[in-house]
Design a binder for these strands. Structure first.
Length: 449
RNA sequence: GGCUCGUUGGUCAAUCGGUUAAGACGCCUCCCUUUCACGGAGGAAUGACGGGUUCGACUCCCGUACGGGCUACCA
C-alpha cells in the first residue's frame, strides 16, 4: 500500500514516529486528569501484582484495576491533593489511567459487525500514559487519529474489547464528531483455529510475516513470505481474499482490480484459517500470469547468486518453459538449473533396469547423427531421433525417458527436444556421452560381481 | 471465570426466506501429454444442536453447545 504520508514521504501531518510525537500526548493526558476522566496512579509493579493476588478468587481469576479496586490503590483518587502534588513534584514514577465510568452503556457502530455495546463497569482503567512519558496505544491511537484526520480505522478483531476505551476517549477529549468509522476485521487463524502467530509458522513450516524478521531479543530469524518466494501480487491477493470476496467467485485480483471491486459490506465477520496449500496456489497463478521477461527480472533480483549472471533473454525463454510447474520463486532453480549447468545427479535407476545393449548402440549412433545435424531446432532433432530409432528397430517411446535422464537428470521438466535445443548441440552431446559412461561403468561393475 | 465476537464440506467460501446448497484449494478417478506440470472431464465431502416466527428457513429471533479475541506501564 502507498501511505498518503510517511517518514519517507512527509506531508502536513508529521511527525510519524511515536517517539518523535512523545511530547504531543502529555497535555491531553493532563487535560483528562483535570476533567476528572483520568487520574495519576503511583502503584509499583509489585503493588499491582499484590492487588491481582489479593483480589483473585475462583469466580474472578484475573482482577483488574477498575471501579472495584481503584479506591484501594495508591493514586490521585485515594491520596490527598497535597500528597499527590508532592509525589508529582518529587518525580515519583506514575502513570495516567483512564477512570472508567460506573455502569454506563458504551455503544458504537462497527462497519462489519453492526452495533456493539459494552458496559463500562466491565472495562478496566487502562494506562494512558506510561511512567516513561510515552503513551500507550489507547491514548496514541485516539490522539493520532484525531490530529491526522483519520476517517476510517480498520484493525483486527483483537482490538474490539478495547474499543470502548477509545470511544470514551474521543468523547472525553471533545472530538466525538470527528471519531473515525470503526471496522474490526476478522482475524487470520492458524490451522488449529487460534489467532495466527509465529508459533504456527514454526510448527507447520510456513511464513507468518511478509518479510524476514529477526527477533531482536533472541536474534532469531523468521523467514518471510517474500524470501520464501512469494510474489507481492500473490501475497496481497491471498490476504485480501481471507475474509472478503466480491461475490462473483473471482479469486485472482490485481491490486487495482481489488481496489475497484472492494466493498466493506462484503467483509466477513468470522475469522479465516490460513491454508498454506491455497497460498501456494495463488502464487502459482500469479507466476503463470506474469510476463516471462518480468519474471526473469524478478528471479535475478530474488536469487542474484544463481540467476544474476544469466543472460536475460535466455532466462526469459527458460522461465516460459518451466513456470507452470513452479509454485514459488524458489522452485525455479530446481526446475531449470539443468538449462544452465549439467545436472549434478542422474536418476539412472529409472532406466538402468531396462537398459539393453541395443540402447547403447542407439545412443552411440545418436551421438554421430545429432553431431552431424546442421539445424539445431526441436522439430529437426526430433525427426532425426525418431528416424534413427526406426532404423535401430526400437520404439521412440522407450528411448525418450533415457534421453530425458541424460539431459535433465530426472523425470521432470519441459519437452526433451526443447531442452536439447535450449541447452545447445555440444552440451547435449556431452551429457548423452556422460550418462552413457555412467551406465557402462555401472553395468561393468555389476558384471564383475 | 468475566466481557465480547463468531459458527455453511478438511480449508477459503456463494446464498441477502422458495436453489438439485455455487465456485476455489486440497484429495481421488479418467482424458491430454512417449517425463513432470499445465489444461480438460468427472467424483467424494457442507448448513453445530434445540426451540420458535413463517405457507416455506442455511437465511430472521431465542436458547444451548462449541470456537476465537481480550482480560499488561504490548501492540
Amino acid at each position: 500500500m502507498q501511505p498518503h504520508e510517511s517518514p519517507a514521504n512527509p506531508g502536513k501531518f508529521g511527525p510519524y514516529r511515536q517517539s518523535e510525537r512523545k511530547a504531543l500526548y502529555t497535555p491531553y493526558a493532563e487535560q483528562l486528569v483535570e476533567q476528572g476522566h483520568a487520574y495519576y496512579a503511583f502503584d509499583t509493579p509489585e503493588e499491582l501484582e499484590r492487588m491481582r493476588q489479593n483480589f483473585k478468587t475462583e469466580a474472578n481469576p484475573s482482577p483488574t484495576y477498575d471501579g472495584t479496586t481503584r479506591l484501594q490503590m495508591r493514586n490521585s483518587l485515594t491520596l490527598t491533593p497535597q500528597e499527590t502534588e508532592t509525589l508529582l513534584a518529587n518525580g515519583t514514577p506514575r502513570v495516567v489511567r483512564i477512570k472508567m465510568p460506573h455502569n454506563q452503556n458504551i455503544e458504537f457502530a462497527d462497519m462489519i459487525r453492526g452495533s456493539i455495546s459494552f458496559n463500562s463497569s466491565m472495562v478496566d482503567d487502562k494506562v494512558l500514559l506510561k511512567a516513561d512519558g510515552m503513551p500507550t496505544y489507547h491514548l496514541a491511537v485516539v490522539v493520532d487519529d484525531y490530529l491526522m484526520e483519520i476517517t476510517h480505522a480498520f484493525r483486527g478483531e483483537e482490538w474490539l474489547s478495547s474499543a470502548p476505551v477509545h470511544v470514551l476517549l474521543w468523547q472525553y477529549l471533545g472530538w466525538q464528531q470527528h471519531m473515525p468509522q470503526w471496522a474490526h476485521l476478522p482475524l487470520i487463524l492458524g490451522p488449529d483455529g487460534a489467532k495466527l502467530s509465529k508459533r504456527h509458522g514454526n510448527k507447520y513450516g510456513f511464513p507468518i510475516f511478509a518479510m524476514n524478521w529477526t527477533d531482536p531479543s533472541k536474534s532469531e530469524l523468521t523467514e518471510g513470505f517474500k524470501e520464501r518466494g512469494f510474489l507481492p501480487e500473490a501475497f496481497i491477493n491471498l490476504l485480501a481474499l481471507m475474509g472478503w470476496n466480491d461475490g462473483t467467485g473471482q479469486e485472482i485480483f490485481s491490486k487495482a482490480a481489488m481496489a475497484a471491486a472492494f466493498d466493506m459490506s462484503r467483509v466477513h465477520s468470522a475469522g479465516a484459517q490460513f491454508d498454506y496449500e491455497k497460498a501456494k496456489w495463488y502464487n502459482q497463478e500469479w507466476i503463470k500470469r506474469l510476463a516471462d521477461t518480468d519474471l526473469a527480472e524478478r528471479l535475478k533480483r530474488f536469487d542474484e547468486g544463481r540467476f544474476g549472471h544469466i543472460n536475460q533473454e535466455l532466462l526469459g525463454k527458460v522461465v516460459g518453459l518451466v513456470k507452470e510447474r513452479c509454485h514459488l520463486l524458489t522452485d525455479f532453480w530446481n526446475q531449470a538449473s539443468f538449462f544452465f549447468q549439467p545436472p549434478e545427479t542422474f536418476d539412472t535407476n529409472a532406466i538402468a533396469p531396462k537398459w539393453t545393449s541395443e540402447k547403447t548402440a542407439f545412443f552411440q549412433a545418436l551421438l554421430k547423427d545429432w553431431g552431424a545435424a546442421e539445424q539445431w531446432e526441436p522439430s529437426e532433432i526430433e525427426q532425426r531421433f525418431k528416424n534413427l530409432a526406426n532404423t535401430h528397430l526400437l520404439k521412440p517411446g522407450e528411448l525418450m525417458l533415457p534421453l530425458r535422464i541424460m539431459l535433465v537428470g530426472g523425470k521432470f521438466g519441459p519437452g526433451v527436444f526443447d531442452v536439447a535445443t535450449m541447452v545447445g548441440q555440444p552440451e547435449t552431446l556431452r551429457r548423452i556421452e556422460h550418462v552413457l559412461q555412467l551406465l557402462f561403468t555401472a553395468n561393468a561393475s555389476t558384471e564383475m560381481v
